Amino acid sequence: MSDREFAGKVAVVSGAAQGIGAAVVRRLLAAEARVAALDVKQEQLEQLARELNAGDRLTIHRVDVADTAEVNRAIADAVAHHGPIDYLASVAGVLQMGRVVDLTDEQWQHALSINAGGPFRLARAVGKQMIERRSGSIVVVSSNAAGPARYEMGAYAASKAAATKMTQVLGLELAEYGIRVNIVSPGSTDTDMQRGMWADESGRDNVIRGSLDTYKAGIPLRKIATPDDVADAIVFLLSERAGHITMHDLRVDGGATFDQ
């Protein structure tokens, strides 16, 4: 089945202002979907809307996914403008580095509120509507860091592991309504978040090679993912091409976690 299946359908994408989320928005609009783009970064959302020039098929919504009221309001506004929601791509996330013993309560809670709480709040708001219609598809972006332990990633890994398990349980609970719920777990991807972890221009090569000092494997495919690589996986799982796939965790990491 081609991407024509998205024509006229309604999708909500969080974390839409840049990186993977923006790539998903572009793919869905190219497939003639109607898209509500959510992000906390208003200026970058406005820039994306100007760039894409999609008219009323694209609406932008300034939303902090850690805030229940803001999430519920954005979903209500999206429905009011576009109609019932067919797809949810929950992409918004933050990176929190630091050894567990050095993390503050605020850092710990911030990671959990956005990386796990964001997908929960969005899925709750959208899922209730999908149940009424007995149709829909949801994809939550987690991380391959939810698997193997990663040095100085206690808060990030824990929040992504929580998102992964919540999403799998959601998929089990929504299956009887014909609603599919899946996970995409990227590895190192060429985004601002990834580049912010690099000390210098050797950062990309260091990630590909891995690090014995921090017990981190490299990437067997010898390259870092692009946002489009991950967006392709998200759009596939949203689509009817994945019509018999639910509760699946698809790793898009060039083999970095050796299919664990």
Rank of each mutant, 00 (worst) to 15 (best):
D3P: 04
V13F: 01
A17S: 13
A22W: 02
A22P: 08
V24R: 05
V35R: 12
A36V: 10
D39S: 13
L48E: 01
L48W: 04
R50I: 05
R57H: 09
T59K: 05
V63M: 02
D64N: 15
V65N: 00
T68H: 11
V71R: 08
A76E: 15
A76Y: 10
A78L: 07
V79H: 04
G83V: 05
Q96S: 06
E106C: 00
H110Y: 12
L112D: 06
G118L: 05
R121E: 05
V126S: 01
Q129T: 06
Q129H: 14
V140M: 07
S143A: 07
G147V: 02
R150L: 15
A155C: 03
A155Q: 01
A161V: 02
A162N: 02
A162P: 00
Q168S: 07
V169W: 14
V169D: 13
L174G: 03
L174R: 03
G187R: 01
S188W: 04
Q194H: 08
R195D: 06
R195L: 02
R204M: 10
R204S: 11
N206M: 13
R209C: 08
R209P: 05
G218S: 13
K223V: 13
P227N: 09
A233Y: 02
I234M: 02
V235S: 10
S239C: 15
T246A: 11
D259V: 11
